[in-house]
Nucleic acid binder design. Structure first.
Length: 521
RNA sequence: UGUGGAGUGGCGCAGCGGUCAGCGCAUCGGCCUCAUAAGCCGAGGGUCGCGGGUUCAAAUCCCGCCUCCGCAACCA
């Protein structure tokens, strides 16, 4: 049985969940559901990143211990799961004991091994640089400007000072060529293509060693053998992917089944961490590297960048409340080519809901099923011989699974949906072309054949759309009397049995009405 | 500045050397009446960023320019 391990990034608890978080996890959820239906053994992971100086400070500001603080905020992210029908198999928190253990283990594995050039992977030195206390950030010399008072300032205007602190370093510089070879030999390791280009160009410039410990704060995982240091948050964070797979038990069943991961889904802001540092860390520790990292784009809101100062972040739970869960899931996967930036607007959300879901799919289902309920004995009709139009229609739907599979292998969610909805449009044309309402009087046998072709079309559409809209498609399949045992892709060709009684149909997707009709007095 | 990408009907996109440059949405006209005022058919609408060049033929290749976006290290 094929295994499939897919991860979201772990979300930084200093944030409030917004549409971007929901988007990343949703994309993973669709893939996880698809793979499960397709017969794979799936492990779908998400979670929260809970260490670091910012968390420590936020906790203090909130009058809590860091642990209390992260317990509280982590729950906000966890709550996204049930609300959005996420089917993750695990939810990891970097403050859990299993993760502390794994992080220290990978550190030790890295420390015990040599770089491709024969040097120690980890060494102790000092981190030096221009530090802006106000920004809590280091700046490069080239970014600084000198003010009239002779003081150096960061681009933000904050004063900087020269700071040195002891730090362990990862000898990333020795991995430059190894990484370039890795990208050359594994072009599918980074997607979309444009991100791979960026990463290669970045690495080609040569890599500096990476500071991987801090001594200026304490909210982190202690460096093995040197309690004064905590691990750099990114080393800690990235390690979550192997923690959840059971690391350091590399001979365990779970690790052997699921590592290396099939896909790390990330936002475009964290590509470098996942495609440069992470493969290097893993290779340094003697572990296999993930098969693919895919970076999606950002959402703007009504044409504007999402930002804290604008306060325009869209809360996923409110979206679902307003437009409906599957409507939101559909919109996010359909509206924008996955990998590119896109815009979330109220008008676009309503347009997708009404044109694609209510008019095309929902109405197709309704017109077919209610016709059967009224004119065909409320049961799966019995088909006669097929004519060309029937065969064309059936062939179109039969091909949808392969089409969806190959698009999703490349994370082309929008194209998978485009293909499915093109067939839904075909089905509406087919209804008009065959006009069962006329056949009812002239040729009932022919009418039954047409209706059978249509319910079969709906069955397959319902099956293949399950990963995208699980609850509504369950409803559709219920209305088609498809038994729960016949809803995986293994049942793709398991046609409906003529004569099976069908329950009374009800609408799948209500139209979104902008304003309730004014009640005239 | 370097590097990668993008500029195509009102909007969002596809096409990437050769049928009158397509598709979705929106607009307008018609048909049907099974259906969620849904469905179907048709129409209008584009100097394919600008200027050169290559070619029998360019949105599609080459050169230059303009505009926009990503990346250019410790920022989750």
């Amino acid at each position: 049985m094929r295994s499939y391990y897919i991860t979201t990034p772990i979300y930084y608890v200093n944030d409030v969940p917004h549409i971007g978080h929901a988007y990343t996890t949703l994309a993973c959820d669709v893939l996880a559901r698809f793979m499960r239906l397709d017969g794979a053994k799936v492990f779908f992971l998400t979670g929260t990143d809970e260490h670091g100086q910012k968390v420590e400070k936020s906790a203090t500001a909130a009058g809590m211990t860091p642990q209390q603080f992260t317990d509280k905020v982590s729950a906000n992210f966890r709550a996204l799961g049930p609300a959005l029908d996420f089917s993750n198999d695990d939810f990891i928190r970097t403050t859990e004991p299993r993760h502390v253990k794994a992080s220290q283990a990978i550190w030790q594995a890295m420390a015990a091994a040599k770089t491709p050039l024969g040097n120690d992977n980890i060494y102790l030195d000092a981190y030096r640089g221009w530090y802006a206390v106000r920004d809590e950030a280091y700046y490069d010399e080239s970014e600084l400007s000198t003010g009239p008072d002779g003081k150096k300032r960061a681009p933000s205007g904050a004063e900087v000072e020269w700071v040195e602190e002891p730090s362990y370093f990862f000898r990333l510089s020795d991995w430059t060529q190894w990484l370039l070879d890795f990208y050359r030999d594994n072009p599918a390791a980074v997607g979309p293509q444009t991100r791979l280009n960026e990463v290669r160009s970045f690495v080609s410039q040569g890599l500096h060693d990476l500071s991987i410990s801090r001594t200026t704060f304490g909210w982190g995982i202690k460096v093995p053998g040197d309690d004064k240091h905590v691990m750099y948050v990114w080393l800690d964070a990235l390690t979550n992917y192997i923690t959840a797979a059971g690391y350091p038990e590399i001979d365990g069943e779970k690790f052997k089944t699921f590592w290396p991961a099939d896909l790390h889904m990330v936002g475009k802001d964290i590509v470098r961490f996942h495609t440069v540092y992470w493969p290097a860390f893993l290779a340094a520790a003697g572990l296999p590297t993930p098969k693919r990292v895919f970076a999606h784009g950002w959402w703007t809101i009504e044409g504007q960048k999402m930002s804290k100062s604008l306060g325009n972040a869209v809360e996923p739970l409110k979206l679902v409340e307003q437009y409906g869960l599957d409507q939101v899931r559909y919109f996010l996967m359909r509206e924008v080519p996955f990998g590119q930036d896109g815009d979330f607007s109220r008008a676009a959300m309503i347009r997708r809901t009404n044109t694609d879901l209510a008019n095309d799919l929902g109405n197709l289902s309704q017109r077919v099923l209610s016709f059967i309920a009224k004119n065909a004995g409320a049961a799966v009709p019995t088909p006669g011989d097929y004519v060309d139009a029937d065969r064309t229609m059936l062939a179109a739907t039969a091909g949808l699974l392969d089409a969806a599979r190959s698009e999703l292998e490349q994370q082309n969610f929008h194209k998978a949906l485009e293909a499915i909805f093109a067939t839904i449009a075909d089905a509406n044309r087919y209804v008009d072309g065959q006009a069962p309402w006329s056949l009812r009087k002239t040729d009932p046998a022919r009418m039954a054949t047409v209706l059978y072709v249509l319910v079969e079309t709906l069955r397959r559409v319902g099956l293949v759309l399950q990963p995208f809209m699980p609850s509504t498609m369950a409803k559709l399949l219920d209305q088609l009397a498809v038994p729960p045992t016949a809803r995986s892709f293994a049942a793709w060709d398991q046609s409906l049995v003529p004569g099976t009684a069908l329950p009374p149909p009800s609408g799948l997707f209500p139209r979104y009405v902008e304003e309730p009709p004014a009640s005239k007095v």
